[in-house]
Design a binder for these strands. Structure first.
Length: 491
RNA sequence: GGGUCGUUAGCUCAACUAGGCAGAGCAGCGGACUCUUAAUCCGUUGGUUGUGGGUUCGAUUCCCUCACGGCCUACCA
């Protein structure tokens, strides 16, 4: 407290003076009649210089700017609907209230009552007749036209970023709108939203390192889920035919412009559907979301103009590697693959499993070329332990991943529903794990048991919501679309 | 994890190239001003230059350490 900033001290002094007038500066006893937006609507019928006589409005908001003129003052207050100008005049509001107003700073919440008028310059304004304080701000807001630029502060104090930078709130409103539209789209197709465990005894459904936590009473470790997949499939076994979950996954991996340790994912499962059905569903979902949220079927991302309402390109994983890396995965041995790969992607030297090397090649050499909406399909069987083998080629699986502008947006399969084959695949994964592939799958016996009860043929689709929002908001970093991205503590 | 760039007043930025009293705008404070809107005008407070070392007569500036962050890269989605 002793090294408190001078600016905070001054504001606390003002706070004290307000309290000395018998006013509680944090209480709410105010009936709002209008938002600033609705004031603007009422003001449409007022002409320049005129006052709307037969209406008194009560508006509450945060002071954003102030322009003093002796015994009168213009200020702008902001609520969730926008900004409105107020005009506080000593002889209109009374001298006592005007003295109170002098104790008000930019950042404070105030309530005003008064009539609407249009100034000489045509600005809709509330001529204040009564004024009250509802929250005294002790911190100074960032400078009014540069806003908050410091990226670290924007993330650490997102609340300030939201106040100071006008484009931040609309972005997160759009994110919310996208997720809402996604739910609406899925409800329209009769999908049922379900919730499955975030804390799992065996983390499964994806290739990633999990976060570990501990339950004290049960005295056992639990893992924050890396994916909901295996539980959602259990529900398909249980008889649900169309289900989805929109929720957080947690992966204990690196942080980058495309990765946050916790991220939001849509996963949906549809019985009696295959990956062909889901590709059509994906196309429809993307352009429907664009229509609803962007009011068009195209989007601009980092200089690329992308039309969504069309049949997306399809390229098989093997063709893609052949096209961009000039390696034929179907004919090379593991040893040959390792040899050819190390020239293109030196990092593969350290890798041993087929999955890791093929994955590395794909990410480094293929993905940057996938700008137009593209489904990469038919991945080699050894890369996808949960996917069903392709009906006419048993070395491949019925899997696809949607890509736009080099962003991997999801993952989908015709799900493997043969319990014995699933068990074999898990055993193969355990072999990969033994040669150093830490992300290879673990055995989940209960999941095998579930499959033994019989899972209908099912299509499953996962969509990374944060990345989808990046794309829809033209954001270069996933941190720009996550309100509170993960950072190290300060100091 | 590796590479690279950055960190100066509450906020936005100068000063660093080639070491020589750390500056401006906004915000704040005092004053003038009853239709302004980046209000204007006059005056003014505010700094351990991210941290800790080193070189030097002298370091915001050069060198090193550490912390935090951006970008690239790796793991991953």
């Amino acid at each position: 407290m002793t090294d408190e900033h001078e600016l905070v001290k001054i504001r606390k002094e003002k706070l004290k003076k307000i309290r000395e007038q018998g006013i509680d500066p944090y209480a709410l006893h105010f009936k709002r009649t209008h938002s600033s937006k609705s004031v603007h609507e009422c003001a449409k019928k007022v002409s320049v210089g005129e006052v709307l006589e037969d209406l008194e409005v009560a508006v509450i908001g945060r002071i954003i700017t102030v322009r003093e003129h002796g015994k009168s003052c213009f200020a702008n207050i902001r609520d969730d609907s926008g900004d409105i100008q107020i005009y506080v005049k000593s002889n209109a509001v009374g001298e006592k209230a005007y003295d109170l107003f002098k104790l008000i700073d930019i950042g404070d919440f105030i309530g005003v009552k008064g009539k609407i008028f249009k100034t000489r310059t045509g600005e809709n304004t509330i001529l204040v007749s009564k004024l009250s304080v509802f929250s005294k701000s002790l911190q100074t807001l960032p400078e009014k036209w540069s806003g908050l630029k410091d990226i670290e502060l924007k993330y650490r104090r997102r609340y300030v970023d939201l106040i100071a930078n006008k484009d931040i709130k609309p972005l997160f409103k759009l994110r919310s709108h996208i997720i809402g539209s996604m739910r609406k789209f899925l409800e329209g197709k009769k999908f049922l939203e379900v919730e499955t465990p975030m804390m799992q005894q065996i983390p499964g459904g994806a290739m990633a390192k999990p976060f570990v936590t501990h339950h004290n009473t049960l005295d056992m470790d639990l893992y924050l889920r890396i994916a909901p997949e295996l539980y959602l499939k259990r529900l398909i076994v249980g008889g649900f035919e169309k289900i989805y979950e929109i929720n957080r996954n947690f992966r204990n991996e690196g942080i980058s412009t495309r990765h946050n340790p916790e991220f939001t994912m849509l996963e949906l499962y549809q019985a009696f559907a295959d990956y062909e059905d889901l590709m059509r569903l994906t196309e429809e979902m993307f352009y429907t979301l664009a229509e609803e949220c962007l009011c068009k079927t195209s989007l601009e991302y980092q200089g690329h103009n992308i039309e969504l309402k069309k049949e997306w390109k399809r390229l098989s994983f093997v063709e893609a590697i052949k096209k961009y890396a000039k390696i034929d995965l179907e004919s090379v041995s593991d040893k040959e693959l390792k040899n050819s790969a190390k020239h293109l992607v030196p990092e593969t030297r350290k890798m041993n499993s087929f999955r890791e090397i093929a994955d590395a090649l794909f990410k480094r050499v293929v993905i940057p070329n996938l700008i137009e909406p593209t489904f990469i399909i038919d991945y080699p069987e050894r890369m996808c332990p949960l996917a069903k083998k392709k009906r006419d080629n048993k070395n491949l699986t019925e899997r696809f991943q949607p890509y736009i502008c080099g962003i991997e947006l999801g993952n989908a399969y015709s799900e493997l529903n043969d319990p014995m084959e699933q068990k074999e695949r898990f055993l193969d994964q355990i072999k990969d794990r033994k040669i150093g592939d830490e992300e290879a799958h673990l055995m989940d016996e209960d999941f095998i048991t579930a499959l033994e009860y019989g899972m209908p043929p099912t299509g499953g689709l996962g969509i990374g919501i944060d990345r989808l929002v990046m794309l829809f908001t033209n954001s270069p970093s996933v941190r720009d679309v996550i309100l509170f991205p993960q950072l190290k503590p300060q100091k």
